[in-house]
Design a protein around this nucleic acid. Structure first.
Lengths: 154, 154
DNA sequence: TATTATTAGTTGCAATAGCAACTAATGTCA
DNA sequence: TGACATTAGTTGCTATTGCAACTAATAATA
Protein backbone atom coordinates (compact mmCIF):
# COMPACT_ATOMS: atom_id res chain seq x y z
CA UNK A 1 0.00 0.00 0.00
CA UNK A 2 1.69 3.14 -1.23
CA UNK A 3 0.98 6.36 0.53
CA UNK A 4 2.51 8.82 -1.86
CA UNK A 5 2.27 9.38 -5.58
CA UNK A 6 5.37 8.03 -7.20
CA UNK A 7 4.84 10.02 -10.35
CA UNK A 8 2.40 12.83 -11.00
CA UNK A 9 0.34 13.17 -14.13
CA UNK A 10 -0.05 16.73 -15.27
CA UNK A 11 -3.52 16.58 -16.75
CA UNK A 12 -3.39 19.96 -18.44
CA UNK A 13 -0.25 18.90 -20.30
CA UNK A 14 -1.48 15.44 -21.20
CA UNK A 15 -1.84 15.27 -24.95
CA UNK A 16 -5.12 13.34 -25.27
CA UNK A 17 -6.67 15.62 -22.68
CA UNK A 18 -5.60 18.78 -24.46
CA UNK A 19 -6.85 17.44 -27.75
CA UNK A 20 -10.20 16.51 -26.23
CA UNK A 21 -10.63 19.87 -24.54
CA UNK A 22 -9.92 21.87 -27.69
CA UNK A 23 -12.05 19.64 -29.83
CA UNK A 24 -14.99 19.83 -27.45
CA UNK A 25 -14.64 23.57 -27.21
CA UNK A 26 -14.80 23.92 -30.97
CA UNK A 27 -17.58 21.36 -31.38
CA UNK A 28 -19.53 23.36 -28.82
CA UNK A 29 -19.08 26.50 -30.87
CA UNK A 30 -20.52 24.85 -33.96
CA UNK A 31 -23.19 23.01 -32.00
CA UNK A 32 -24.47 26.38 -30.78
CA UNK A 33 -24.64 27.73 -34.30
CA UNK A 34 -26.58 24.77 -35.66
CA UNK A 35 -28.79 24.59 -32.60
CA UNK A 36 -29.65 28.24 -32.22
CA UNK A 37 -30.44 28.97 -35.82
CA UNK A 38 -31.79 25.66 -37.09
CA UNK A 39 -32.48 23.49 -34.02
CA UNK A 40 -30.17 20.85 -35.41
CA UNK A 41 -27.77 18.76 -33.39
CA UNK A 42 -24.29 18.18 -34.76
CA UNK A 43 -25.28 14.61 -35.52
CA UNK A 44 -28.33 15.73 -37.45
CA UNK A 45 -26.31 18.28 -39.35
CA UNK A 46 -23.66 15.70 -40.21
CA UNK A 47 -26.30 13.45 -41.69
CA UNK A 48 -27.60 16.30 -43.80
CA UNK A 49 -24.06 17.18 -44.84
CA UNK A 50 -23.44 13.63 -46.03
CA UNK A 51 -26.71 13.63 -47.94
CA UNK A 52 -25.81 16.93 -49.56
CA UNK A 53 -22.54 15.42 -50.62
CA UNK A 54 -23.80 11.92 -51.45
CA UNK A 55 -27.52 11.91 -52.23
CA UNK A 56 -29.38 8.61 -51.91
CA UNK A 57 -26.99 7.21 -49.35
CA UNK A 58 -28.42 4.52 -47.09
CA UNK A 59 -28.36 4.85 -43.31
CA UNK A 60 -25.54 2.36 -43.36
CA UNK A 61 -23.55 4.45 -45.83
CA UNK A 62 -23.98 7.45 -43.57
CA UNK A 63 -22.89 5.40 -40.59
CA UNK A 64 -19.77 4.23 -42.38
CA UNK A 65 -18.84 7.70 -43.51
CA UNK A 66 -19.44 9.42 -40.18
CA UNK A 67 -18.92 6.62 -37.63
CA UNK A 68 -22.25 7.52 -36.07
CA UNK A 69 -23.58 4.48 -34.24
CA UNK A 70 -26.57 2.98 -36.03
CA UNK A 71 -29.16 3.33 -33.27
CA UNK A 72 -28.28 6.98 -32.84
CA UNK A 73 -28.41 7.37 -36.57
CA UNK A 74 -31.80 5.69 -36.81
CA UNK A 75 -33.31 8.07 -34.29
CA UNK A 76 -31.66 11.14 -35.79
CA UNK A 77 -32.93 10.15 -39.23
CA UNK A 78 -36.46 9.84 -37.85
CA UNK A 79 -36.30 13.33 -36.45
CA UNK A 80 -35.09 14.71 -39.75
CA UNK A 81 -37.90 12.84 -41.54
CA UNK A 82 -40.44 14.28 -39.09
CA UNK A 83 -39.16 17.77 -39.77
CA UNK A 84 -39.34 17.03 -43.47
CA UNK A 85 -35.70 17.94 -43.96
CA UNK A 86 -34.87 14.61 -45.52
CA UNK A 87 -36.90 11.95 -47.30
CA UNK A 88 -36.56 8.21 -47.48
CA UNK A 89 -37.24 5.62 -50.12
CA UNK A 90 -36.31 1.97 -50.10
CA UNK A 91 -34.29 0.28 -52.79
CA UNK A 92 -36.25 -1.84 -55.26
CA UNK A 93 -33.56 -4.46 -55.48
CA UNK A 94 -32.93 -4.64 -51.73
CA UNK A 95 -35.93 -3.69 -49.66
CA UNK A 96 -33.82 -3.34 -46.50
CA UNK A 97 -31.69 -0.62 -47.98
CA UNK A 98 -32.88 2.94 -47.44
CA UNK A 99 -32.20 5.72 -49.87
CA UNK A 100 -32.03 9.02 -48.09
CA UNK A 101 -31.93 12.45 -49.60
CA UNK A 102 -32.55 16.06 -48.68
CA UNK A 103 -36.04 17.41 -49.37
CA UNK A 104 -36.31 20.82 -50.97
CA UNK A 105 -36.74 22.29 -47.48
CA UNK A 106 -33.66 20.34 -46.49
CA UNK A 107 -31.78 21.73 -49.43
CA UNK A 108 -32.79 25.25 -48.45
CA UNK A 109 -31.46 24.72 -44.94
CA UNK A 110 -28.37 23.04 -46.34
CA UNK A 111 -27.75 25.97 -48.65
CA UNK A 112 -27.88 28.27 -45.67
CA UNK A 113 -25.71 26.23 -43.37
CA UNK A 114 -22.91 25.42 -45.80
CA UNK A 115 -21.60 28.95 -46.34
CA UNK A 116 -22.16 29.70 -42.67
CA UNK A 117 -20.08 26.69 -41.67
CA UNK A 118 -17.29 27.62 -44.01
CA UNK A 119 -17.38 31.15 -42.71
CA UNK A 120 -17.03 29.99 -39.11
CA UNK A 121 -14.34 27.52 -40.09
CA UNK A 122 -12.48 30.38 -41.72
CA UNK A 123 -12.84 32.54 -38.65
CA UNK A 124 -11.63 29.70 -36.50
CA UNK A 125 -8.58 29.24 -38.69
CA UNK A 126 -7.63 32.90 -38.76
CA UNK A 127 -5.27 32.07 -35.91
CA UNK A 128 -3.16 30.09 -38.40
CA UNK A 129 -1.25 31.18 -41.45
CA UNK A 130 -1.28 29.01 -44.57
CA UNK A 131 1.74 26.98 -43.50
CA UNK A 132 0.30 26.30 -40.09
CA UNK A 133 -3.01 25.22 -41.56
CA UNK A 134 -1.23 22.76 -43.80
CA UNK A 135 0.88 21.57 -40.89
CA UNK A 136 -2.09 21.00 -38.67
CA UNK A 137 -3.87 19.03 -41.34
CA UNK A 138 -0.88 16.84 -41.98
CA UNK A 139 -0.33 16.21 -38.31
CA UNK A 140 -3.98 15.43 -37.66
CA UNK A 141 -4.01 13.06 -40.58
CA UNK A 142 -0.93 11.25 -39.30
CA UNK A 143 -2.34 11.05 -35.82
CA UNK A 144 -5.63 9.67 -37.04
CA UNK A 145 -4.01 6.97 -39.13
CA UNK A 146 -1.72 6.03 -36.30
CA UNK A 147 -4.48 5.85 -33.71
CA UNK A 148 -6.42 3.56 -36.03
CA UNK A 149 -3.48 1.21 -36.07
CA UNK A 150 -3.34 1.26 -32.25
CA UNK A 151 -7.00 0.29 -31.97
CA UNK A 152 -6.36 -3.21 -33.28
CA UNK A 153 -3.29 -4.47 -31.44
CA UNK A 154 -4.21 -4.37 -27.76
CA UNK B 1 -37.20 27.35 -52.93
CA UNK B 2 -33.91 26.10 -54.27
CA UNK B 3 -33.76 22.62 -55.72
CA UNK B 4 -30.02 22.17 -55.99
CA UNK B 5 -27.12 22.62 -53.64
CA UNK B 6 -25.34 25.83 -54.50
CA UNK B 7 -22.20 24.81 -52.67
CA UNK B 8 -21.24 21.45 -51.27
CA UNK B 9 -19.67 20.95 -47.90
CA UNK B 10 -17.08 18.22 -47.83
CA UNK B 11 -17.58 16.89 -44.36
CA UNK B 12 -14.46 14.73 -44.28
CA UNK B 13 -12.35 17.79 -45.10
CA UNK B 14 -14.10 20.13 -42.69
CA UNK B 15 -11.64 21.10 -40.01
CA UNK B 16 -13.85 20.95 -36.90
CA UNK B 17 -15.16 17.59 -38.05
CA UNK B 18 -11.71 16.14 -38.55
CA UNK B 19 -10.59 17.43 -35.19
CA UNK B 20 -13.62 15.97 -33.49
CA UNK B 21 -13.22 12.59 -35.16
CA UNK B 22 -9.56 12.24 -34.22
CA UNK B 23 -10.14 13.45 -30.71
CA UNK B 24 -13.03 11.05 -30.15
CA UNK B 25 -11.04 8.20 -31.58
CA UNK B 26 -8.20 8.86 -29.17
CA UNK B 27 -10.48 9.49 -26.21
CA UNK B 28 -12.10 6.15 -26.96
CA UNK B 29 -8.73 4.46 -26.85
CA UNK B 30 -8.00 5.83 -23.40
CA UNK B 31 -11.56 5.31 -22.20
CA UNK B 32 -11.17 1.61 -22.99
CA UNK B 33 -7.96 1.39 -21.01
CA UNK B 34 -9.40 3.07 -17.92
CA UNK B 35 -12.65 1.19 -18.21
CA UNK B 36 -11.33 -2.29 -18.83
CA UNK B 37 -8.67 -2.33 -16.18
CA UNK B 38 -10.12 -0.06 -13.50
CA UNK B 39 -13.81 0.43 -14.34
CA UNK B 40 -13.24 4.18 -14.39
CA UNK B 41 -14.84 6.58 -16.83
CA UNK B 42 -12.67 9.31 -18.33
CA UNK B 43 -14.48 11.81 -16.12
CA UNK B 44 -13.76 9.77 -13.00
CA UNK B 45 -10.14 9.36 -13.98
CA UNK B 46 -9.77 13.09 -14.64
CA UNK B 47 -11.04 13.85 -11.17
CA UNK B 48 -8.52 11.45 -9.68
CA UNK B 49 -5.78 12.95 -11.82
CA UNK B 50 -6.55 16.44 -10.55
CA UNK B 51 -6.56 15.19 -6.96
CA UNK B 52 -3.23 13.49 -7.52
CA UNK B 53 -1.88 16.77 -8.79
CA UNK B 54 -3.71 19.07 -6.39
CA UNK B 55 -4.73 17.28 -3.19
CA UNK B 56 -7.52 18.82 -1.13
CA UNK B 57 -9.12 20.52 -4.10
CA UNK B 58 -12.81 21.27 -3.73
CA UNK B 59 -15.38 20.02 -6.25
CA UNK B 60 -15.48 23.54 -7.56
CA UNK B 61 -11.69 23.63 -8.03
CA UNK B 62 -11.92 20.39 -9.98
CA UNK B 63 -14.73 21.80 -12.07
CA UNK B 64 -12.71 24.92 -12.87
CA UNK B 65 -9.64 22.94 -13.81
CA UNK B 66 -11.40 20.35 -15.95
CA UNK B 67 -14.54 22.16 -17.15
CA UNK B 68 -16.63 19.24 -15.96
CA UNK B 69 -20.16 20.43 -15.30
CA UNK B 70 -20.92 20.49 -11.60
CA UNK B 71 -23.84 18.07 -11.54
CA UNK B 72 -21.84 15.52 -13.48
CA UNK B 73 -18.96 16.15 -11.14
CA UNK B 74 -21.13 15.73 -8.07
CA UNK B 75 -22.34 12.33 -9.20
CA UNK B 76 -18.90 11.18 -10.33
CA UNK B 77 -17.45 12.21 -6.97
CA UNK B 78 -20.11 10.17 -5.19
CA UNK B 79 -19.18 7.09 -7.16
CA UNK B 80 -15.51 7.55 -6.35
CA UNK B 81 -16.41 8.00 -2.68
CA UNK B 82 -18.50 4.81 -2.78
CA UNK B 83 -15.59 2.93 -4.25
CA UNK B 84 -13.36 4.41 -1.60
CA UNK B 85 -10.97 5.81 -4.17
CA UNK B 86 -11.28 9.33 -2.85
CA UNK B 87 -12.26 10.83 0.49
CA UNK B 88 -13.99 14.05 1.39
CA UNK B 89 -13.76 16.46 4.26
CA UNK B 90 -15.36 19.88 4.57
CA UNK B 91 -13.46 23.05 5.27
CA UNK B 92 -13.63 24.35 8.82
CA UNK B 93 -13.73 27.97 7.73
CA UNK B 94 -16.30 27.43 4.95
CA UNK B 95 -18.57 24.49 5.57
CA UNK B 96 -19.79 24.48 1.97
CA UNK B 97 -16.33 23.86 0.61
CA UNK B 98 -15.32 20.22 0.16
CA UNK B 99 -11.75 19.05 0.43
CA UNK B 100 -11.21 16.02 -1.75
CA UNK B 101 -8.21 13.74 -1.81
CA UNK B 102 -7.21 10.29 -2.95
CA UNK B 103 -7.47 7.51 -0.37
CA UNK B 104 -4.57 5.08 -0.11
CA UNK B 105 -6.50 2.74 -2.40
CA UNK B 106 -6.97 5.68 -4.72
CA UNK B 107 -3.25 6.40 -4.61
CA UNK B 108 -2.51 2.79 -5.50
CA UNK B 109 -4.79 2.97 -8.51
CA UNK B 110 -3.37 6.38 -9.40
CA UNK B 111 0.17 5.01 -9.20
CA UNK B 112 -0.80 2.30 -11.63
CA UNK B 113 -2.65 4.47 -14.08
CA UNK B 114 -0.15 7.30 -14.35
CA UNK B 115 2.73 5.33 -15.93
CA UNK B 116 0.23 3.44 -18.07
CA UNK B 117 -1.23 6.69 -19.35
CA UNK B 118 2.17 8.11 -20.13
CA UNK B 119 3.09 4.90 -21.88
CA UNK B 120 0.00 5.04 -24.10
CA UNK B 121 0.54 8.72 -24.73
CA UNK B 122 4.08 7.91 -25.82
CA UNK B 123 2.86 5.17 -28.11
CA UNK B 124 0.29 7.50 -29.57
CA UNK B 125 2.92 10.12 -30.25
CA UNK B 126 5.37 7.75 -31.92
CA UNK B 127 3.86 8.91 -35.20
CA UNK B 128 5.47 12.31 -34.58
CA UNK B 129 9.11 13.31 -34.32
CA UNK B 130 10.18 15.86 -31.71
CA UNK B 131 9.61 18.83 -34.01
CA UNK B 132 6.15 17.65 -34.96
CA UNK B 133 5.19 17.12 -31.35
CA UNK B 134 6.25 20.64 -30.52
CA UNK B 135 4.41 21.94 -33.58
CA UNK B 136 1.22 20.18 -32.70
CA UNK B 137 1.33 21.51 -29.17
CA UNK B 138 1.90 25.05 -30.33
CA UNK B 139 -0.86 24.85 -32.88
CA UNK B 140 -3.33 23.30 -30.44
CA UNK B 141 -2.51 25.98 -27.93
CA UNK B 142 -3.08 28.73 -30.47
CA UNK B 143 -6.32 27.19 -31.61
CA UNK B 144 -7.60 26.86 -28.08
CA UNK B 145 -6.84 30.45 -27.19
CA UNK B 146 -8.42 31.65 -30.39
CA UNK B 147 -11.58 29.59 -29.99
CA UNK B 148 -11.97 31.01 -26.49
CA UNK B 149 -11.94 34.47 -27.96
CA UNK B 150 -14.61 33.46 -30.48
CA UNK B 151 -16.90 32.17 -27.72
CA UNK B 152 -17.58 35.63 -26.43
CA UNK B 153 -18.30 37.78 -29.45
CA UNK B 154 -21.26 36.16 -31.16
C1' DT C 1 -34.32 -25.36 -52.41
C1' DA C 2 -34.15 -25.67 -47.40
C1' DT C 3 -30.95 -24.15 -43.68
C1' DT C 4 -28.00 -20.98 -41.87
C1' DA C 5 -25.44 -16.65 -41.86
C1' DT C 6 -25.22 -11.96 -42.77
C1' DT C 7 -26.93 -7.35 -43.34
C1' DA C 8 -30.08 -3.05 -42.70
C1' DG C 9 -32.51 -0.93 -39.72
C1' DT C 10 -35.39 -0.48 -35.26
C1' DT C 11 -36.36 -0.71 -30.51
C1' DG C 12 -35.77 -1.77 -25.35
C1' DC C 13 -33.32 -0.51 -21.64
C1' DA C 14 -30.04 1.16 -18.45
C1' DA C 15 -26.57 4.60 -17.88
C1' DT C 16 -25.07 9.24 -18.64
C1' DA C 17 -25.48 14.24 -19.73
C1' DG C 18 -26.77 18.58 -18.67
C1' DC C 19 -30.07 22.28 -17.61
C1' DA C 20 -32.61 24.29 -13.95
C1' DA C 21 -34.29 24.46 -9.51
C1' DC C 22 -33.12 23.66 -5.01
C1' DT C 23 -30.64 23.77 -0.06
C1' DA C 24 -27.39 25.53 2.85
C1' DA C 25 -23.55 28.51 3.93
C1' DT C 26 -21.17 32.77 3.33
C1' DG C 27 -20.57 37.57 1.70
C1' DT C 28 -22.19 42.37 0.98
C1' DC C 29 -23.91 46.55 2.18
C1' DA C 30 -27.42 49.78 3.72
C1' DT D 1 -27.90 43.41 12.27
C1' DG D 2 -31.09 42.27 8.60
C1' DA D 3 -32.17 41.83 3.71
C1' DC D 4 -30.33 40.37 -0.46
C1' DA D 5 -26.79 38.33 -3.43
C1' DT D 6 -23.52 34.94 -4.28
C1' DT D 7 -21.31 30.53 -3.87
C1' DA D 8 -20.78 25.24 -3.19
C1' DG D 9 -22.86 21.40 -3.91
C1' DT D 10 -27.08 18.28 -4.69
C1' DT D 11 -31.08 16.63 -6.89
C1' DG D 12 -35.14 16.38 -10.28
C1' DC D 13 -36.19 15.83 -14.72
C1' DT D 14 -35.82 15.10 -19.58
C1' DA D 15 -33.06 14.03 -23.49
C1' DT D 16 -29.32 11.53 -25.36
C1' DT D 17 -26.09 7.61 -25.58
C1' DG D 18 -24.95 3.23 -26.82
C1' DC D 19 -25.10 -1.74 -26.12
C1' DA D 20 -27.76 -5.70 -27.09
C1' DA D 21 -31.63 -7.94 -28.68
C1' DC D 22 -34.83 -7.92 -32.14
C1' DT D 23 -37.31 -8.03 -37.07
C1' DA D 24 -37.11 -8.47 -41.77
C1' DA D 25 -34.67 -9.08 -46.03
C1' DT D 26 -30.97 -11.00 -48.65
C1' DA D 27 -26.85 -14.02 -49.37
C1' DA D 28 -24.37 -18.25 -49.01
C1' DT D 29 -24.00 -23.04 -48.92
C1' DA D 30 -24.86 -27.75 -48.36
Amino acid sequence: MSEINKQILTLEGFFPYKLSVSSNKISGLFADIYQDKFALSITQWRIMAILGEYPDSSADDVSNKTHIEKSILSRAINKLLQRNLIQRAFSETDKRRSMLSLTSTGIDVYNEIVPLSYEYEKQLLTCFNATEKAQFNTLLEKLCTHSDSLKGNN
